[in-house]
Write a protein that binds this DNA or RNA. Structure first.
Lengths: 242, 242, 242, 242
DNA sequence: TATGAATGAGCGTTCATTCAT
DNA sequence: TATGAATGAACGCTCATTCAT
């Protein structure tokens, strides 16, 4: 029995969320194989047959977890990255750093008037915030799902969407600069950026005391400025009004 | 039975290597839990009791795999990164890119006369080459071990050593520049660099046709030059005589 | 499948008794180590996982058997030995033998008016009857549990309780006689008495045709009268109305 | 490896004794099933195939242990019980206790001039001394072999010989008295006597500090005098010159 | 809707025993 | 004589999954 009083006869939708919550917790704690359906049902405060009735066998259950948490993460990031929809004055103050490294404005595209680097930073920040607030979800997505072939596809798809978004952002940044880069090179850049972020996020999941926003800034500095420039003392700074 | 003719009565040392080879293959194929001792013994071309007699129960066997492959990887990298021991003329031509981005020479330190960025690039190249040539090992180290708590420690230790090496390199690079950076910031940089490399390496493991050396260069470009400068058209180029 | 029709979906309490019955049978037949959980489940007419679900792993199962049978045996004896609760006339005829050997009355103590030797004999009789009627239980308690260290404690405890009861009886007998005996000597006497009974009981377990009541009388004769007096032709005789 | 330096190439007979020593130790420590041939070979300081070559498979090895230790015990007892071979004066002083309970002389039979009770006591004393000095052997004989059906026969045979000896002694005692007792009754008496002794011996095996000779006297008192007479204050005392 | 009862199938581990040297 | 190398066979235990109520 979980802590919840477990009122009987809850509507299906509610029960399903309870189960998914429990499943994510247990999968993150044990890993896919070591997690037992018994423990999950127990954690959810219901009996095993209910789990099967609502969410199917173990693989489907895990997939459902992946789906829900993956979608949440993606939406958090995409929402944060989306160009501001409204008037150009709203974020006039959002600019790149004082002067060390120039931001790239992607104005004129579909988006609002934010500079490209500011949008990137917002995405990173949203990502780290999500991981900081949902460690279990991150653990399931990043640590557990990776090792299990049956879910590799699912994961790869989600990752591909992220890569695509990032690569798209980079591309539009280049276009705004009047420059062009070959697709594959862009893709590797995106991979590297995403990988760096994931790695630091994973570290964050084990260090609850760390500040997600600060990590976002540090990563941004590294990724945007580059090790070489960093060594030379250059710094990127987050926009002020965020 | 494996394809090997399986000559009977081999000495212990040989059989142990056979077993470890088989174990790495199977663990990478199935994951820790889904891998069965039967399949491993089968793949090694011997009976299960021998596996237990020589390498102990499943957890110890996995740990042994981790150890062997982790050590191989680490040695490959560290050897590549080590400053050249001999005469200064040997790598006179090893320089940073023509002019876009200046390399940082760590000459005068303990090491030989290679510039800092060249050494970093050598390390990356060694890393990607290893992953390209030992996909199974990489899969075990990076994808499987991560999800299983019992081995998190082992992994974290190895990772920490890499991070330390990288952070050390960065630090010496900074010192050579006459600059100084706080420890934590250095650490996050190292994390990001390692994470980016791992992520791309993982992609490499699924794309056998990719060229490790080229990936190393791309990562180096990204990591060294930074996304911002990259967008501005700056490029880092590998030294010639490698 | 056992001979029982094995109605499905029995309540837990019933199934547990079935399992214990089967376990006692198999343990007695094979011994602790040689008994397999498969055979036990089979004998009980259910599947192995049920055994584990209800009664735990092998050691716990064996302990449960020990507990149940030990308790049954102890209760049989203690009930039989307990002084009659009611009127003194009830067993007026219960006396020791005609005259050969005087019985010792423990009247005036807490108990009813039975003589001490009569109570001892009742205990012995109950013991032999139990063994005669539950050979498997006896085998488990006496032959199997003894050799296995993990259960030595359990057994020793039960045995100690018996010894204590017997020693207490002897002691009260002595007190009634106005005599006193040192504790250790009493204890060895109790050990000897219990040991002699166990030994004969074990013989009984292998000779189903023997009459428990007769054995009780013989043992009583030996133990009460002593070899020396027996050789001299003295006899103890059971009270009539039992 | 055992503590012995294990000089190679020992003659077969010596090696066999080493093995049996080791086997008895391990069987007593673990029980028949839990003892592994590996541990036995290890304890003996030789390799497993040697054990098989010399003493056969596990069951035969255990039987050999049983045989050796059983024979030792039997010989110790029988030697002690054997009527003194020579002149009647030798043990003139060997008499029964001062006067409480009369000893029964079996003079005139095949034996020397010892009284019957003295011989019984000598046997008991030899028995307890053996158990006190060979706890492992006792454990194997009494605790381990009993539970394992394959050896029940072996054990029963040995026990039968003891019973026979004891019953024979009792019988000769009766004959000397001019009395006669039915076979079955005699047998039960012998069983009881042997059982009482075994039980106390088992207690002795767990209490190394106890004095075997004292235990023998106590048992003798109980068995000879009987509980009833004991309660009445009668005592049997060992002859003086032993 | 909700669950206690039940199981097929499989895995990790061990051990007595033998072969080849 | 003596042993390292090797295995067939079994056993304890667990788990995902389903049935009957």
């Amino acid at each position: 029995m979980s802590s919840t009083p477990a009122f009987k006869r809850l509507p299906r939708a509610v029960r399903e969320q309870q189960m998914l919550d429990a499943a994510v917790k247990v999968f993150s704690r044990r890993g896919f194989h070591a997690a037992s359906m018994d423990e999950i049902a127990d954690e959810a405060g219901i009996s095993k047959p209910m789990v099967y009735a609502y969410l199917g066998p173990k693989e489907e259950l895990f997939t459902a977890c992946l789906h829900r948490e993956g979608t949440r993460l993606m939406e958090a990031i995409i929402t944060a990255v989306r160009p501001l929809p409204v008037g150009p004055t709203a974020d006039a103050a959002v600019g790149s750093a004082p002067g060390d490294v120039a931001g790239v404005s992607d104005e004129g595209g579909a988006g609002g008037g934010r500079t490209f680097d500011a949008r990137l930073w917002c995405g990173l920040r949203a990502f780290f915030r999500f991981v900081g607030a949902n460690r279990d979800a991150w653990s399931v997505l990043y640590r557990q799902a990776r090792g299990e072939q049956p879910f590799a596809g699912e994961l790869t798809t989600m990752r591909a969407r992220i890569i695509e978004v990032v690569a798209g952002m980079l591309d539009r940044g280049l276009v705004a600069e009047g420059r062009e880069v070959a697709g594959p090179e862009l893709e590797v850049m995106a991979y590297a950026l995403v990988g760096a972020s994931e790695s630091v996020a994973d570290w964050l999941a084990d260090h609850p005391e760390a500040d997600p926003d600060e990590l976002a800034t540090r990563i941004m500095n590294f990724v945007w400025t580059g090790a070489g420039s960093l060594l030379a003392g250059h710094r990127w700074r987050p926009p002020l009004n965020h």
